[in-house]
Structures are given as C-alpha cells and as structure tokens.
C-alpha cells in the first residue's frame, strides 16, 4: 500500500510540475506583462525597469528555476498588477467559488445518481424515457444559456431571486441550480448505463432467484458494482471544483476563482495564474488519487491487482 501511495504521489508531483512548466512558458512567451500593466504607451525605459524589477529580463530557464525555488518554500510570489500576495489573493476567491460549487456538486450527485438509478430500474418505460429526455436536455443546453433563462424567469419576471452577485444566500441559488443541472445530467446517463449493465449480470439474477428482496439486490449488489464509472466521473467533477465554473461565474457575476482566472490570464498576472494552476492541478491530482483508493474499496479485485 505504501509503495502504491508513493508511486501515486510521485506521479502527482510530476503532473503538477509539467502543468506549472507548460503554463510558465506559455504565459511568458505569448505576451509581455510589462506592457499590459504599464500600458501600451509606457516609455521603453519604464518597461525595462519593470522587467528588471520582476526579473523578466533574465533567461526563461533562470526565471523558472527561481520560481520553482520559491514555490517549494511555499512562496507563490506577488501579483504584478497590484503587488498583493498571490496565494492570499487566490485563496480568498477559492472560498467564494466553493460556496456555489460544493452545494452544486452535492445536489448534482444526488439528483444525477438518483435519476439514473430510477431510469435503469424502469428501463424502457415512460419514466425512463422522461428522465433521459431531461438528462439529454440538461447536458445539451450550455450552462450560460440555462443561467440566462433562469435569470429571466426567477429574477426578471418573478423577481424572487437576484440576477447575480453574492450579496445574500439567495444569490447562490441560481448558479447552484445551473451547475447542478449540468452535472446531474451527466451522472444520470452514466449511472443509468452502468446500472443497466450490472442489472443484466448473472449474479443479480442469482440474488433474485435465491429470494433476496429486490431493494436489497439493488442497494447491496447492483449499486456498488455500478459505482466504478460513476465514481470516476464524480472524481473528475471534484477535481474541477476550483476552475469549473468560469462561465457560470461570469454569467452570475459571482466573484470567485473563475473571474480571477479570466482577469489574471488576460492581464498576464503570471504569479496569480501560476498559483491558480498549481491549486487546480493539485485538486485534480488529489481527487484522482482518492478515486483510485475508492476503486480498491469498491472492488477488492482492484486491491489485489494493486499488489
């Protein structure tokens, strides 16, 4: 188990390193932060001074080495735009993003897994068709369209909820609903196909034949075996929690990480973008590790294979 974990941690660190290196090169070679910050009409001397002050005049590999050295000491650098500590700036926004992402994920999982299971158990019946129609629609309609429709109905017409912003808890409802709809739609389809596959297995027929009540067969035998693809998908969703709501945040003027990413990338605020990417990559990698561990718990054969 220790070797397994060690391998996974090393792979995770390598993944993060590759992400950081790729972003570092891309951000520094596609635009000059000095011109973005100082303005297009800044004198060349001011631009040179800015480069010197931020170390942008050094060779790229020297800059990268310096950045990595700071990074291992937990120093993510400062925002070139306003001098604020990059990590502090990013963590402030993470908290705001999680206010909508966590409830949306919980709601999406509950609705998606529930709907997918019910649809599978009613395969071919009108209820199945209805649920899959809803799932396909929820998947097909982009989040920004759904968001605007919800705003038109609940904010503009009924005036029950705010159209955007995070002034009160009511402001979370529409973005949560928008995000949860998309996730629930995906999970419903995955859960349904996984459940249908499992329900066709001989051991399910055996369980029924030996007299187990159907609910027990579904909960104790079918659902754990159908969980592998669903857990994989949920793992991706958890991994994307931090950066998965860029569009939704923009539509609802939600001042989270998504808006910070957009602003920081367009203004080449390198330290902030790098910090976001490290956190996003770390979340994704950790989420995948947890999913791997869950595989072993859900399916002992995988544990055996792991050895």
């Amino acid at each position: 188990m220790t070797a397994f974990l060690l391998r996974r941690v090393l792979r995770a660190l390598l993944t993060i390193l590759i992400v950081v290196a790729a972003a570092f090169v891309a951000l520094r070679t596609t635009s000059d932060p000095a011109i973005v910050v100082l303005g297009p009409d800044a004198p060349p001397e001011a631009i040179a001074a800015f480069h010197e002050a931020w170390g942008l005049d050094r060779p790229l590999w020297v800059q990268f080495g310096s950045y990595m050295r700071d990074l291992v000491h937990g120093n993510f650098g400062k925002s070139m735009l306003d001098g604020q500590d990059a990590l502090e700036k990013v963590l402030d926004r993470v908290a705001v993003t999680l206010q909508i992402m966590v409830p949306a994920l919980v709601l999406g999982i509950m609705a998606g897994v529930g709907a997918g299971t019910v649809a599978a158990l009613n395969r071919g019946r009108p209820l199945d068709r209805l649920m899959m129609l809803g799932a396909v629609s929820g998947f097909a309609v982009p989040g920004f369209v759904l968001g605007l429709v919800l705003v038109l109905v609940f904010a503009v017409t009924l005036q029950w909820l705010p159209s955007g912003g995070n002034d009160s808890w009511k402001g979370t409802l529409l973005p949560v609903l928008t995000l949860a709809t998309g996730w629930a739609a995906i999970l419903a389809r995955f859960t349904r196909s996984a459940m249908i596959e499992v329900l066709d297995q001989p051991y399910i027929r055996t369980g029924s034949a030996k007299g187990l009540i159907w609910r027990e067969v579904v909960i104790r035998h079918a659902m754990p075996n159908a969980a592998i693809p669903v857990v994989t998908m949920i793992g991706f969703m958890v991994g994307g929690l931090l950066a998965g709501a860029v569009v939704t945040e923009s539509v609802f003027s939600w001042p989270g990480l998504g808006q910070l990413i957009v602003t920081s990338v367009s203004s080449r605020d390198v330290a902030v973008v790098q910090c976001v990417l490290v956190l996003v990559a770390a979340t994704m990698v950790m989420s995948n590790m947890i999913v791997d561990l869950l595989y072993g718990w859900l399916d002992p054969r995988m544990r055996e294979g792991g050895r």
């Binding site: 605007l148 705003v151 038109l152 904010a155 503009v156 005036q159 705010p162 159209s163 955007g164 912003g165 923009s250 539509v251 609802f252 003027s253 001042p255 808006q259």
Partner: peptide, 17 residues
C-alpha cells in the same frame, strides 16, 4: 458592482437589483 455580461446588467436593472 462589476457585472461583465451586458445582458446580465440589463437583467439586473430590470429585476430591481
């Protein structure tokens, strides 16, 4: 308040927000 989407600014003023 910063509302990047133009349609959302209009929706917000129509909604009284």
């Amino acid at each position: 308040v910063q509302v990047p989407e133009a349609s959302q600014r209009v929706n917000g003023v129509r909604a009284g927000q």
